[in-house]
């Protein structure tokens, strides 16, 4: 084999799929920018506006801190209640959706219901509850219960489906009623993972509880919305800092709890 013959050999297999995908994404990006009416001029105006906005946001104004604290506390309450009730509701839902415990005619519709709960953004659910049951924290709690069910019940059902069938058969073989099967064979195997899901959902609910107020469902979001509408941008930045701080602390705390339960 001479070097000259080597030169004609194919060094790389051409990756047509990759090239087509990359080209398509590039073309799409250009098209989408123009479809969304994004021009260099608009970008330049936007930059100027952005600079002015940041200028008005700084320094953050914490003068109205009682309002801020009140909103944060309400968000926290919404998150706690929605998590507690959502977790409570997810336990039976998860059991009903587990295909190794339930016949298909129970498990499949339950799964559809859970998937339905997950399909809508919590804010959309919140807005519906606001329209149905009026403004306030109650609508927020209800919306986040729906979101929690969609998430935890699904993971819980999956965890139950992964459990070892042996203890299940052993308890069933002893002629135990269904409740005993659940308590002695299912729960011990999935409880530790359930705590993890619940913590994750608490984090997630805390994030969303700061948002549902934007549509009138209580919490700091309402304060934020009002501040935006009145162009109080220095208060807006104060609220945002407070939200980020609260969520950050929440993450640290849930990290501690997770370690305590490991």
């Amino acid at each position: 084999m001479s070097a000259a013959a080597g030169a004609r050999r194919r060094a790389f297999a051409p990756d047509w799929t990759g090239r087509v995908v990359v080209a398509a994404i590039a073309l799409y990006t250009l098209y989408a920018f123009s479809a969304l009416d994004f021009s260099a001029q608009r970008f330049a105006t936007g930059l100027g506006e952005g600079a002015r906005l940041i200028g008005r946001m700084l320094p953050p104004n914490f003068a109205r801190w009682p309002l801020l604290v009140e909103g944060l506390i309400e968000s926290l309450q919404i998150a706690i209640l929605a998590s507690a009730l959502g977790i409570l509701a997810s336990l039976p839902l998860g059991l009903l959706a587990a295909r190794n415990l339930m016949p298909g005619w129970v498990a499949v519709p339950t799964r559809f219901f859970i998937a339905f709960c997950r399909s809508f953004h919590p804010v959309i659910v919140a807005i519906l509850f606001v329209k149905a049951i009026g403004f306030g924290a109650l609508a927020g709690v209800a919306a986040l219960i729906v979101a929690s069910m969609g998430f935890i019940a699904k993971l819980f059902a999956e965890a139950i489906e992964e459990i070892s069938p042996k203890p299940l058969e052993a308890v069933r073989a002893s002629g135990a009623p269904f409740a005993a099967v659940v308590i002695f064979a299912v729960m011990p195997q999935v409880m530790s993972r359930f705590v993890g899901f619940a913590l994750y959902q608490l984090d997630s609910n805390l994030r969303n509880s700061t948002m549902v107020g934007l549509v009138g469902a209580g919490g700091i979001g309402g304060t934020l919305d009002a501040a935006f509408k009145r162009f109080d941008y220095d208060f807006v930045s104060a609220i945002l800092i407070a939200i980020i701080a609260m969520i950050f602390i929440g993450e640290i705390l849930s990290g501690w709890v997770r370690r305590a339960f490991q």
Binding site: G6, A7, R10, A11
Partner: peptide
């Protein structure tokens, strides 16, 4: 861009032949 100099690619093929993996380039 995988635009290696042709000399490098030739050298690579020569070495692949030398280690007995001439058909494994891709």
């Amino acid at each position: 861009l995988r635009r290696f100099p042709q000399a490098d690619i030739d050298a690579a093929f020569a070495l692949l032949d030398a280690v007995g993996l001439g058909d494994f380039a891709t």
